[in-house]
Write a protein that binds this DNA or RNA. Structure first.
Lengths: 194, 194
DNA sequence: GGGAGTAGCCTAGCTCTCCTAGGCAAACGG
DNA sequence: CCGTTTGCCTAGGAGAGCTAGGCTACTCCC
């Protein structure tokens, strides 16, 4: 019997593409097996279980996103860098909804550490160099940036902005303006804030 | 045979509690049937399909969240109202992770219209009255607020803030400070922004 | 080039979930 | 008190996840 030539990498890539088409929750071992013209049981030679497949999609997505963000950031600084980062992030999430959704699964600590996550965090911090923030403000700012990006993209994807004529693109631009403004003038803690 | 007394409301409540315990993705018709001491096929007398169950959890969660937000907002205005809204939002998401996750599913337009979603949106707009923003700035600000809240809560839940000693609570307070600051001084569109 | 070992695939079969079809009995309305 | 509706049942099919065990086609080593 001719071998199909299945490898973990080919499996992961096919799974990621399937996820973008039908959603991560519908990425199934059986569907992948059909795609490769192979019985589903055979894939368990390459995978521990179905969950591993989703983790691998997440790791692929994290790496791809980090690459695009890095490319977008090259040679930019200040608000220019902020916008480039944000647009690359949103663009990736829109082009690859399944991959992006997979990124949200809870990775166990050691897997997360070896992922492109830390690289991603490092690049976010790099943007803030243009805004001259010290710790712990820098960490707080990184978290707020990431929250805004992820929140916006996530709400946009689930249709949260559909019930109003204002385009998501316009609101996105203004959110970045606002983010830039507040980063340039990061407020001191309020009285009741530690 | 004694009747178990299953109703759609009891079913939805049990499903929501199960979701908070084990995650929405593990809320199954079979598990609910076991909970009520009934065969799974019997539940299809009350439900169209398994998807309807998740939609009902989402609608319940939206209504509950809107209630809490309304209670938190009573008698407050300005930053006080912003913080109360945000804390009620985050508190609900943390107490009811399964219900909150269910809220993110894509409701079809007419279901969304009859949900507590519009009520929620109305309350968000009410907060902005203290900041005196006109359209379309108001819509942009609502979207940014919601993005920040949802993004933060979502990242916190998937462990995005675990890899740094800074507490999520502290970052949350500062994000609200920043949001208040930028709402009080909402930037004019930048040159390349429509 | 021939054997040994292993990588890559198979069949068979278990459990679980979702869901349909059709039936029976308890509760209720007239 | 009798018919209708309501609430549950059994039976069963399709598809997903996964395990056990077996066969075959490569690869490497002598």
């Amino acid at each position: 019997m001719a071998r199909a030539g299945v490898t973990v990498d080919r499996l992961t890539l096919a799974a990621a593409e399937l996820a973008d088409q039908v959603g991560v929750e519908h990425v199934t071992v059986a569907a992948l097996a059909r795609h490769f013209g192979v019985k589903d049981a055979s894939l368990y030679f390459h995978l521990k279980n179905a969950q591993e497949l989703r983790v691998r999609i997440a790791l692929l997505a994290l790496a791809e996103l980090a690459d695009r963000v890095a490319a977008a950031l090259a040679g930019r600084s200040g608000k220019d860098a902020l916008v480039a980062f944000a647009d690359a992030y949103r663009d990736y999430a829109r082009r690859h909804p399944g991959r992006y959704a997979a990124m949200q699964i809870d990775l166990d600590p050691e897997t997360a550490a070896t992922s492109a996550g830390p690289r991603h965090a490092e690049m976010t911090r790099a943007i803030l160099r243009g805004y001259r923030l010290d710790e712990p403000d820098q960490t707080d700012a990184v978290r707020m940036m990431h929250s805004t990006f992820h929140g916006f993209v996530s709400l946009e994807r689930t249709g949260g902005f559909r019930h109003h004529p204002r385009t998501a693109d316009a609101s996105w631009s203004r959110a970045l303006d606002a983010l830039d403004a507040v980063l340039r003038n990061w407020p001191r803690p309020s009285d009741d804030t530690p």
